[in-house]
């Protein structure tokens, strides 16, 4: 599989009054063309920031401190604003969490779809409209012609997320970054949207980075997983390998917390403790404060991602 995206030693910081907050710390991963990667971890682990840094759209006062992001043959971190604009939406699209907030309330669906294509491709309104209609069909929304003239508030949350997916596909990107695309939706609709996303990425050959807390969803949709903790990737590898044979104590904890793994008395086996503040990450393994297996080495030395017997790469001194 040829490489679509390769991130190397990416570090993203936020310059705050109390000091620099390291939201993404020395993160590396790659993604093949048409491959689907799950980015999981608890709240505040740096998943969204990682996602946004791929299109250089980190909110203020965040900035890419060091590292490289290579998409096809483009070095994202060194692009001018104009060149970056051409990457966004054309090569890499993004899907946000809350479809109620993502679409502009005062512009029609048609306008918002067509402008996405016309920002990148020199084509007439008519041609863009034809592609918009085609994409609305692809996301299984009935009577597409009518939809073009509607406003977002005339649609349900599930519908809107379908439209957002259709917008993401407008310029036929190579990669879609979906940041918790179903979290804000009704439970009954979540699976539908996820299936749709999976179906489209597969048929269109689009790569997907799926950001989520939900390991169950990730195991159904993605081929590979990267588990993030306190800004670092602690375990990455084949999805089935990791879900069935997790090596990192944090991943093991996450999986044990899933409802089907919990026993009756203790329905949710939450990992005790909280994630350390990203302004002051403790030395050594960032997970050591919450780890049952913690040893002196863990408090002193940051573990590197190394290939383990399972084939996954794990950042833990003790995993074998």
């Amino acid at each position: 599989m040829d490489t679509l995206l390769s991130v190397e030693n990416l570090t993203v910081k936020f310059r705050l009054r109390q000091g620099d907050l390291t939201a993404v710390d020395n993160v590396s991963f790659t993604l093949g063309r048409g491959e689907r990667l799950g980015l999981v971890g608890e709240s505040g682990a740096g998943k969204s920031v990682t996602g946004f840094s791929l299109i250089n759209l980190i909110s203020k006062p965040g900035f890419i401190d060091s590292g490289s992001i290579r998409f096809e043959d483009i070095e994202i971190t060194r692009l001018s604003d104009t060149a970056m604009r051409k990457v966004r939406g054309e090569k890499i699209s993004m899907i946000f969490q809350d479809p109620m907030m993502t679409l502009n309330p005062v512009l029609t669906i048609g306008t918002q779809m067509i402008e996405t294509l016309r920002a990148h491709v020199g084509c007439s309104r008519r041609q863009a409209e034809a592609i918009a209609l085609e994409n609305i069909r692809k996301v299984h929304i009935p009577s597409p012609e009518k939809r073009l003239k509607q406003y977002p508030h005339e649609m349900s949350g599930g519908m809107r997320q379908r439209i957002v997916i259709a917008i993401a596909l407008m310029a036929s990107p190579g990669l879609i970054i979906a940041d918790e695309p179903t979290t804000a939706l009704d439970v009954t609709i979540q699976a539908e949207i996820m299936d749709l996303l999976l179906e489209l990425c597969a048929t269109e050959g689009v790569g997907l980075i799926l950001i989520t807390h939900d390991l169950a969803v990730v195991s159904q949709v993605t081929q590979r997983i990267a588990v993030m903790y306190a800004g670092r990737i602690v375990e990455t590898g084949d999805t089935q390998q990791i879900v069935h044979r997790p090596k990192h104590p944090y991943t093991q904890g996450l999986l044990a917390a899933l409802p089907q793994h919990s026993n009756r008395q203790n329905r949710l086996n939450q990992i005790p403790g909280v994630m350390p503040s990203l302004i002051k990450i403790p030395p050594g393994c960032s997970f050591h404060e919450r780890c049952d297996l913690c040893q002196d080495l863990c408090r002193e030395q940051i573990p590197q991602l190394n290939e383990k017997s399972s084939g996954a790469h794990v950042a833990c001194h003790l995993a074998e």
Binding site: R85, K86, V87, G89, F96, L103
Partner: peptide, 11 residues
């Protein structure tokens, strides 16, 4: 969010 999304669309 919709302005951030508009930026992510490359407008």
């Amino acid at each position: 969010d919709y302005i951030k999304f508009a930026k992510a669309k490359g407008l």
